[in-house]
Write a protein that binds this DNA or RNA. Structure first.
Lengths: 294, 294
DNA sequence: ATCGAGTGATACCGGAAAGGCATCATGTTC
DNA sequence: GAACATGATGCCTTTCCGGTATCACTCGAT
């Protein structure tokens, strides 16, 4: 196999058609250049230059090989550059998971900020519930998750993106909506409830249980996705507790009512990533991302 | 700059994810392979592999660089093959010049034979008069010419492709055509003649002058191309002398009449090439071409 | 015809680099 | 905790590479 130096030497001679000048251009003397070319020709198995003790000429094979040599060198020079870009995080791929609800609030501004900070980074998006995101982060299928607690603080690092309040979603024209104002605990004790799944949507389930005494007899559906929940409310199957960001869904036939303000803003959304970060683009993002979104 | 060995080493390690096995595959021991990779990483300016004393893993930069490395090696392996193909004449480019008249006779079969003998050789074609071909052959712009004498036998080698007779082209419905039979010298002494240029088409000019006494007063046009000549005949400007192969032109409104057979077949077409052949494809063609065409 | 200039090839030498062997450092497993 | 596995390092030998000096050949001028 030939070497890159031999290729560079050949290109120089092919362009100068003169060993001496080519050697000068390469900052070397003429004799080793002659040997380089000889070795290259031996390695290639064809005469590339016709030397005539008076002038140098490219053979047809040499003409063709010159092109290939140029492509080889160009590729060899470009390859490390792209590798470094990826290593530095200026280029590469970022795989981000997000929950349906976060898709309507923070995802848009986040993506905008990413493309401003890392314009050459491709972003893969997947809508996944929190549990699936945790799993994907563990196996390395995701780089960053937009999800809710709980998760293992040993394995994952995180940053709180924002908090929001819970609201009650009721069908349009529902008596509570007509009455207006804040919804209290008593207002719901006779309502049909659409509840979160304690397995798939553990976070919301615990949150709601903690906030008010749920009459288990009132639960008519158990679902894991906010979107499903709101759809069922629109179908007048009952009322449901959803984060404020769900109001952005814009589904017809649903109204959102505030809960008593004593509950504060209990719904958290976190950016979560594995502590053993291997993706340089993620490191760079975390370093320069302004998390004061909202 | 890195070396091809380093690239091959990196590819082997990236595929095996194990220095020992990779070294074995490369018929070397593990320590120099480790150093190869270190040097490669230094040359690239980025960590390509993550070594963990227990397992080896590709970094994102490494993943990207692996692709480039594969492309580089593939290109490096293919380049000499194509160079050798061209050097041996099995591939390459053949630039052939031809006269308009030969384009209608021998060019087709010739190209067919070339593509049978040298299927991977590209053929460039240029229609040129003999003089232009000679010039292009001298400067190396053409590899092979299909042309007529005279040319310098010192500089050019040649082979006679075929001889053909001269014919007289007359407008359709011309008295000579109606009469039929052979055209003799006397038949033309009152006809308007379209003659060959003594400069551009010296060969035909000399030929016609030698064959019969031309009344210079009868010459109404002097042209250098057979096609122009036949077009002028179709326009009833006069009669002209053309090689038999011009009958293949298929131009409406022209009839071709034989000359007295005593003149034989005086029109020669030669394949001409420079004696200092530098194009391997041409050497190969000349070696195996069957010139018994027509 | 001869001599000198120009050009690529060859001979030889010294230093740098590469590969092999032995060994180390570290992490895993039983 | 002892044995094993794996990649890194130290050291030695050989190979390779580039530089200087010189040769071989051609062409042009005198």
């Amino acid at each position: 196999m030939f070497t890159f130096d031999q290729l560079a030497g050949f290109i120089a001679v092919a362009e100068e058609l003169h060993f001496g000048r080519a050697a000068e251009r390469l900052n070397m003397t003429q004799p080793p250049l002659s040997r380089q070319i000889q070795k290259l020709e031996k390695a290639v198995g064809a005469e590339l230059l016709e030397r005539d003790n008076r002038k140098v000429q490219l053979t047809p094979a040499g003409t063709a090989f010159l092109e290939e040599a140029r492509r080889l060198l160009a590729l060899a020079e470009r390859a490390p550059v792209t590798a470094r870009r990826i290593a530095s995080g200026r280029s590469g791929l970022l795989r981000i998971g997000f929950t349906a609800a976060s898709g309507f609030s923070i995802l848009g501004p986040l993506l905008e900020e990413i493309s401003a900070i890392l314009p050459d980074v491709d972003v893969d998006l997947q809508e996944l519930v929190t549990g699936e995101q945790i799993q994907a982060l563990e196996t390395g299928e995701l780089d960053l998750g937009l999800a809710r607690p709980p998760f293992d603080k040993e394995v994952f690092d995180s940053r709180l993106l924002y908090r929001e309040s819970m609201m009650v979603a009721v069908p349009a024209g529902h008596p509570l909506a007509r009455r207006g104002g804040v919804v209290g605990n008593d207002d719901l004790k006779d309502e049909a409830l659409i509840m979160h799944s304690p397995l798939q949507a553990r976070y919301f389930y615990d949150l709601v249980i903690r906030m008010l005494p749920v009459q288990h007899g009132n639960v008519v559906h158990t679902v894991s996705q906010i979107l499903t929940m709101v759809s069922l409310v629109a179908a007048k199957r009952g009322v449901a507790f959803v984060p404020r960001s769900a109001t952005a869904l814009g589904i017809q036939g649903v109204e959102f009512l505030p809960l008593a303000s004593s509950h504060g803003e209990p719904v958290e959304l976190h950016a979560i990533w594995s502590r053993k970060v291997s993706n340089p683009a993620l490191s760079r993002l975390l370093g320069s991302l302004d998390f004061q979104l909202d």
